[in-house]
């Protein structure tokens, strides 16, 4: 079953074409890693999928529901506002810089979207939040405020917050880039744990060995195009594409 299907996405900022013709697909339970040089459009792609940006043209279907369709006049036809919000609830996004709500405690950060958006009861939300915080190893920090946590701990809370909404697809935009190297491990471990549980994920990352080990499929983006899409071994070990080889060579040390 397809969770995400995007076809021929095009997106410009002014005269800068950032996504030129992007098509990707994610099946249920699959982990897709997106790699590629800086400025190639990886974040923009995630932002278009999560509706933080609108594409100029192309088709996005999430869990069988059409977010936008390719328009005949060259402009994407978006679904109604209501439908868009409903489709958005299938997705969770983990930001590079966490974006936790600073005025809420750790547990409130995980509970608040459940009570405010999913209209769950407080008890139900709290129970779910405690389970998730246990999963990311932060039970003893549930009453702390984000400013009292390390970057790694904050990122684990933000993963728990995204998971609290029970998304069908969890997207990560460089979840470890804002962290000190010694803290990236704890995040990668959490994501690995999610992969074991067959959580459907799209992960933009510069951690090549992580992509290689955890992803079922790897996509290489360059300059607004997807120039390779395959298994980790196809991309990392057996590629004859010089662009990819040059890129990967930078990480070999």
């Amino acid at each position: 079953m397809k969770i995400l299907e995007a076809n021929h996405l095009v997106k410009s900022f002014g005269s800068l074409e950032v996504l030129k013709d992007i098509s990707i697909e994610v099946k249920k339970g699959e982990v897709l890693a997106i790699i590629g040089p800086s400025g190639s459009g990886k974040s923009t792609l995630l932002r278009c999928i999560t509706q933080l940006e609108d594409v100029d043209n192309g088709e996005i279907v999430i869990c069988g529901e059409t977010l936008c369709a390719k328009g005949e006049n060259g402009k994407a036809q978006y679904a109604s506002k209501q439908q868009r919000r409903k489709i958005g609830l299938h997705l969770g996004l983990v930001f590079q810089n966490f974006n936790l709500f600073p005025h809420l405690s750790v547990i409130q950060n995980v509970m608040n979207p459940q009570t405010e958006v999913l209209k769950k009861s407080k008890d139900e939300a709290e129970k779910h939040a405690k389970e998730l915080l246990a999963k990311v190893g932060l039970t003893e920090k549930e009453n702390a405020y984000p400013c009292e946590l390390s970057g790694g701990q904050q990122q684990r809370v933000s993963i728990a917050r995204a998971m609290a909404m029970n998304p069908d697809l969890l997207l990560f935009d460089e979840p470890t880039s804002a962290l000190d190297p010694e803290l990236t491990g704890e995040i990668l471990k959490v994501i690995k744990g999610l992969a074991k549980l067959k959580t459907t994920m799209v992960i933009v990352t510069h951690e090549m060995s992580f992509a290689k080990n955890v992803a079922d499929r790897v996509v290489f983006m360059d300059n607004g195009y997807i120039i390779a899409d395959g298994t980790p071994s196809e991309i990392f070990d057996n590629t004859d594409n010089t662009r990819i080889r040059e890129f990967l060579a930078k990480f070999d040390d």
């Binding site: 509706q51 919000r85 969770g92 974006n99 005025h103 608040n112």
Partner: peptide, 29 residues
Amino acid sequence: PKGQFEAAKVLGYSKSTSFFKIILPQVIK
């Protein structure tokens, strides 16, 4: 920070809930 609006939006908060529960408390401070 823009990220606060974006996090609330992606989590599915409506504009008004996001304003009253997430943004306004921080603005007041």
